[in-house]
Design a protein around this nucleic acid. Structure first.
Length: 562
RNA sequence: GACUUGGUAGCUCAGUUGGUAGAGCACCUCCCUUUUAAGGAGGUGGUCCUGGGUUCGAGCCCCAGCCAAGUCACCA
C-alpha cells in the first residue's frame, strides 16, 4: 500500500511512543465517568471528571494548549498545561507525548478538573491523560467560524458514503440523521407494542419471493441444492401468522430488490409491515394517521416537517380521495366502467406511452402515476385501486372492479400501502392465476403462485387489514434528505477499485511472505520452488507494486512485507 | 440504459492559448501559559482517476474505460 507523507509521519510517531514504553493500543478499561454533554449541562467549577474521546482540534501556545475532545455526545474543550500535567522535573509527557506524538483523531482518556476560561468557555483542566488509541490516517478537518460558516467541509458524497465512519466523525449533522432514524423505529415499536401488537421475524431466504411485484435476488442453498430468493416483501409470511392466531403482528423487514439504483432506490431497504385481525382498510387509515402523527412528534418534536421547498404536516386527519376521483379531478376523465381499450385510448390522448402488455390496472396506474401522484404534497390517502394491480387485496365491498386498498402519498410519493387483506382462498388462487396470464403477456414483475400461502388461507384467515410503510422514504421526509443514501449508513456502491492484478507466481510468493512477514530471500526462493526466471519475475512484480521490500544487511538479503 | 457535470496534496478548491503543478487549512521545525475557523517565522507534501492517441511538449485537446453526482427512462 502506498502511504502518504502524513501517514508515514504517524507511523513514525507510533514507533516512538512504543519506544518510550507507551502502548498506543492499550487493552485495559478506561474508567469514564462523564460525557461532554453532562459536563456542559451540570457544570460545577472544580469538579473532578474522567472523560474519553477523540482529539479533534488543538491550539498550542508553548507551554499551554487548548484542544477539543469529541465523544459520542459532542465536544468539550480541554486545557493542557505543561506544569499541571508534569508536576516534577520531567516534562516529556507534555513536551513530547502531547505536543509531538499525539495527532488529531487519536483517542485519549483525560482526568481533570472543570473550570471556565477568561472568555467563559466550559473547560476541563487536564491533570493526567492517557493515549487510548492512535489514529494512523488523518481525518478531514472541517471547522466552523464565528459566523457559522463551515470551512473545508467534508462533502464529497462518494467519499462520505464509502467512508461513512469518517463522515460520522466529522459531520455532526450526519449523525443526527441516524439518531432520528433510530428514534423513528423506536417510536413505531412503542406505538404498536402499546396497542398489544406483536413484533415477529420471518424468513429472508424464501423459496418463492412473494408479497410484491419486483425482481428478486436469487441465491442457492448447497445442501438442499435448491434456489432461494432474498425476500422482496414479508406480507405472505405475516398473514400466515394471522392464520396461526395472532391478532396483530408486525416486522421491520429488510427487503431486497434486484432493480435499478437511484436517489430513491437502494437494492436493500427497510419496510415495516403490520397486520391486524378483524380490521379493515378504513380502520387502518385512522391508525396510519395516528401513527405518523405520533412518529413525527417523537422524531422532530413537531408534526411539521420541511422537505425541500415543502412543509409537510403529519397532523391527523389526512384527506381521503378515491383513485377515480383523483384521475377525474386532474384529467377530467372518468375511469369508472371503462373497457381496457377505452382506457388505453384515453392514456394515449394524455400523452402517456402504452403497450399491449398493459392490462386495465396497469393503465389506470400509469395515468395516476403520470397525472395525479405528483400533486399530493400534504399527506393524502388515495383509495380504491383497480383490482388487477392488487392481487392480494380484498375486492371492494361496493364495486367488484376495485379493491379495498389505500396508499398514503406525501410530496408526490407513496410512503404507505394498505389493504383489507384478501382472505378468500379461492379468489386468491384466481388472482394468482390472473398474474400468471399477465406474466405470459410480458409483465416480468407479475407474482408467482404461492400454494403454501393458499393452503394457509384455506384453514381460514380472519378479516384482516395490513399496511406497509417504506421506512427509508419516511425518514427522508422527516430529516429533509432528498437522497436515500443519506439515510442509510452504508448505501450500496460499486466496488471501489480492482485489486492489484498479480500473476499466480507472484501471488504464491506473497502468500508465503505474508505468513512470515520477513524472511531470508534465499529461503523464500527455495520455498516458492520456482525456476530462477519465474522467481525473478515474481519478486520484481511484488517490489514494483510496493507489496514487498528487499533489504540488504551485511551478509544476507531479507524480504519483508512492505 | 441515455444524457449532463465532475475526479488535481490528508480536506476544500484554483490552474490562463497546450509551455517548470498552485492556494488556504492540515502536517513538519522553531518561538509562544486562559485561546477559540485563521498567533508568528520557515519548510515538506502530487500516479493531476486509468489506458491509449495528437504534439517538440498534455492537468488542459482527441478516443476508450473506471468511479461518482444530477436529469431522464425503467422500477415502487
Amino acid at each position: 500500500m502506498q502511504l502518504s507523507e502524513l501517514e508515514i509521519v504517524r507511523r513514525e510517531k507510533l514507533a516512538q511512543l512504543r519506544a518510550m514504553g507507551i502502548n498506543p493500543y492499550p487493552a485495559d478499561l478506561f474508567p469514564v465517568d462523564h460525557t461532554s454533554a453532562n459536563i456542559k449541562n451540570n457544570f460545577e467549577e472544580g469538579k473532578r471528571v474522567v472523560i474519553a474521546g477523540r482529539l479533534m482540534s488543538r491550539r498550542i501556545q508553548g507551554k499551554a494548549s487548548f484542544a477539543e475532545l469529541q465523544d459520542a455526545e459532542g465536544r468539550i474543550q480541554v486545557y493542557f498545561n505543561r506544569d499541571e500535567i508534569c508536576t516534577g522535573e520531567d516534562k516529556t509527557l507534555y513536551n513530547d507525548v502531547y505536543k509531538k506524538l499525539l495527532d488529531i483523531g487519536d483517542f485519549i482518556g483525560i482526568e481533570g478538573e472543570l473550570f471556565k476560561t477568561q472568555v467563559g468557555e466550559k473547560t476541563v483542566m487536564v491533570k493526567d491523560f492517557k493515549l487510548l488509541s492512535k489514529a494512523l490516517k488523518p481525518l478531514p478537518q472541517p471547522r466552523v467560524d464565528a459566523e457559522g460558516k463551515v470551512h473545508d467541509a467534508f462533502t464529497d458524497p462518494e467519499q462520505r458514503y464509502r467512508q461513512r465512519y469518517a463522515d460520522l466523525v466529522v459531520n455532526p449533522h450526519v449523525k443526527e440523521v441516524f439518531v432520528k432514524r433510530t428514534k423513528l423505529f423506536n417510536a413505531m415499536r412503542t406505538f404498536f407494542n402499546e396497542r398489544g401488537y406483536f413484533e415477529v421475524e420471518t424468513p429472508i431466504l424464501q423459496p418463492i419471493p412473494g408479497g410484491a411485484a419486483a425482481k428478486p435476488f436469487i441465491t442457492h442453498h448447497n445442501s438442499l441444492d435448491i434456489p432461494l430468493y432474498m425476500r422482496i416483501a414479508n406480507e405472505l409470511y405475516l398473514k400466515r401468522l394471522i392464520v396461526g392466531g395472532f391478532d396483530g403482528v408486525y416486522e421491520f423487514s429488510k427487503n431486497f430488490r434486484n432493480e435499478g439504483m437511484d436517489r430513491t432506490h437502494n437494492p436493500e431497504f427497510t419496510a415495516m409491515e403490520i397486520y391486524v385481525a378483524y380490521k379493515d382498510y378504513n380502520w387502518m387509515m385512522d391508525f396510519c394517521e395516528q401513527l405518523l402523527e405520533y412518529c413525527a412528534l417523537q422524531v422532530n418534536g413537531t408534526t411539521q416537517a420541511t422537505f425541500g421547498e415543502h412543509t409537510v404536516d403529519f397532523k391527523a386527519p389526512y384527506k381521503r380521495v378515491t383513485m377515480a376521483e383523483s384521475i377525474e379531478h386532474f384529467t377530467g376523465f372518468d375511469i369508472t366502467g371503462k373497457t381496457e381499450d377505452e382506457l388505453r385510448a384515453a392514456a394515449k390522448d394524455m400523452g402517456i406511452s402504452v403497450d399491449n402488455s398493459m392490462g386495465k390496472g396497469k393503465l389506470i396506474d400509469e395515468i395516476f402515476g403520470e397525472k395525479c401522484e405528483g400533486n399530493y404534497i400534504q399527506p393524502t390517502f388515495i383509495t380504491d385501486y383497480p383490482k388487477e394491480m392488487s392481487p392480494l387485496c380484498k375486492e371492494h365491498r361496493d364495486n367488484p372492479e376495485l379493491t379495498e386498498r389505500f396508499e398514503l402519498m406525501v410530496c408526490g410519493k407513496e410512503i404507505a400501502n394498505a389493504y383489507s387483506e384478501l382472505n378468500d382462498p379461492i379468489d386468491q388462487r384466481e388472482r394468482f392465476e390472473a398474474q400468471l396470464k399477465l406474466a405470459d403477456r410480458g409483465d416480468d414483475e407479475a407474482m408467482f403462485i404461492d400454494n403454501d400461502f393458499i393452503r394457509a388461507l384455506e384453514y381460514g384467515m380472519p378479516p384482516t387489514s395490513g399496511m406497509g410503510i417504506g421506512m427509508d422514504r419516511l425518514i427522508m421526509y422527516l430529516t429533509n434528505n432528498p437522497s436515500i443514501q443519506e439515510v442509510l449508513f452504508f448505501p450500496q456502491m460499486k466496488p471501489e477499485r480492482k485489486a492489484v492484478a498479480l500473476t499466480d507466481e507472484a501471488k504464491a510468493v506473497f502468500a508465503l511472505l505474508k505468513k512470515a512477514e520477513k524472511m531470508e530471500l534465499s529461503a523464500l526462493k527455495e520455498q516458492a520452488g520456482l525456476s530462477n526466471k519465474k522467481w525473478d519475475k515474481a519478486i520484481k512484480e511484488l517490489t514494483k507494486n510496493s507489496l514487498a521490500k528487499v533489504e540488504k544487511t551485511d551478509e544476507e538479503l531479507y524480504v519483508s512485507i512492505h
